[in-house]
């Protein structure tokens, strides 16, 4: 049996209690929601909290409200999100992204908050302890070299969350609550370009909810590249959301790349380029090139970086053609089930 290392388990019933414990215990305590990321990492010795603060008994983290816009409790499972038809209709990209996270079994426990905070991944890091020891560990934990970019002073592990790019494209914000303060942060500012320290969240903060403004005239979509059709972490993803007037002219747009850097990449250049235009073939083509410039895939995931970069314009194309109204259902099915390189 692959055992979890020993830890102390506390299951508070309110956010304030959880925040208080985080403050008192400091960084040796970690929050656990579904545990589908953290517990696996603990078994491999990648993360070694002495105290686990479970969020599952905090009822308020399971609330959904769509009175004005949409507010999602961080503790909602991805499975329950997928059962919500109104989210599918109003926030399609998020719904599609949630639907390709892990497997249906994992989605019954995996939460949206955990997905947003998901640890970054790297083929030199997501290994067992002996394997990592054999290469003298790496910058992300216990070592001093990054094996992917040996001259880099920063870990380049990959942001692998599926829902974050979708949420950023929808302009989402998150509420972060600590024992002494509370703040709301735009999802686009939640991440930073350091695979070892990838969140702007302070270690004493609980992410309590995701806040989405009402979306009038917006359409959104999510496209994910992975080797296996059944389940796999993304190795490239495109989340696109576009707001158009009645005539199809773009009023606002957000295109985000996932899994080709240590953080999801929102392109301001693409937004500037798209506003005032219509999604004709040339515009879509050019947006693909703009997005490809942004991608910085490295050799620390499945498939080659060159190929992942080459796929960016194609995936942007599929996404924007879908948002324009083209029927891409067959293509989506084929790509979702037959990604290969």
């Amino acid at each position: 049996m692959m055992r979890l290392p020993p830890f102390r388990y506390i299951a508070p019933t309110s956010v304030s209690e959880a925040a208080k414990i985080l403050k008192e215990e400091g960084p040796c305590a970690m929050l656990v929601a579904g545990g589908t990321d953290l517990l696996a990492n603990m078994k491999r010795g990648q993360q070694t909290p002495e105290i686990l603060i479970s969020l599952s008994n905090i009822k308020s983290l399971h609330d959904v409200s769509n009175s004005s816009g949409l507010t999602l409790g961080a503790g909602l499972t991805l499975g329950s999100l997928l059962e919500n038809d109104s989210i599918r209709d109003s926030h399609t990209g998020l719904w599609q992204a949630a639907g390709v996270v892990a497997t249906p079994l994992l989605r019954n426990t995996a939460t949206i908050g955990g997905n947003i905070c998901l640890d970054t991944r790297c083929s030199y890091y997501n290994q067992n302890e002996d394997w990592r020891k054999a290469i003298n560990n790496c910058l992300k934990k216990d070592g001093d070299t990054c094996w992917v970019a040996t001259t880099s002073k920063t870990c380049r592990a990959v942001s692998s969350t599926d829902t974050a790019p979708a949420l950023i494209s929808l302009g989402a914000r998150v509420r972060l609550v600590s024992a002494d303060a509370e703040r709301i942060v735009e999802m686009k500012d939640l991440y930073q370009d350091d695979g070892a320290n990838y969140l702007q969240r302070h270690s004493n903060e609980v992410l309590t909810e995701v806040i989405l403004e009402p979306l009038v005239g917006w359409r959104s979509t999510y496209w994910k590249l992975r080797r296996r059709g059944s389940f796999d972490f993304p190795i490239l993803s495109v989340a696109a959301a576009v707001q158009t007037d009645g005539g199809g002219t773009i009023e606002d747009a957000r295109i985000v790349l996932g899994a080709v850097s240590s953080l999801p990449l929102l392109s301001t250049e693409a937004t500037e380029f798209l506003v005032g235009k219509k999604l004709d073939d040339d515009v879509i083509e050019e947006t693909g090139h703009i997005m490809a410039k942004l991608a910085k895939p490295r050799g620390n995931t499945d498939l080659t970086p060159i190929w992942r970069k080459k796929m960016v314009p194609s995936f942007v194309n599929h996404a924007l053609r879908e948002l324009r109204g083209d029927d891409v259902r067959e293509l989506r099915k084929r790509i979702a089930h037959q990604a290969r390189g």
């Binding site: 517990l39 686990l52 479970s54 249906p104 019954n108 426990t109």
Partner: peptide, 16 residues
Amino acid sequence: LKDGKPVLSCLLLALE
């Protein structure tokens, strides 16, 4: 099955 839903018991703390 936990409360009717299929879940992975290897990544679920018993105390949960």
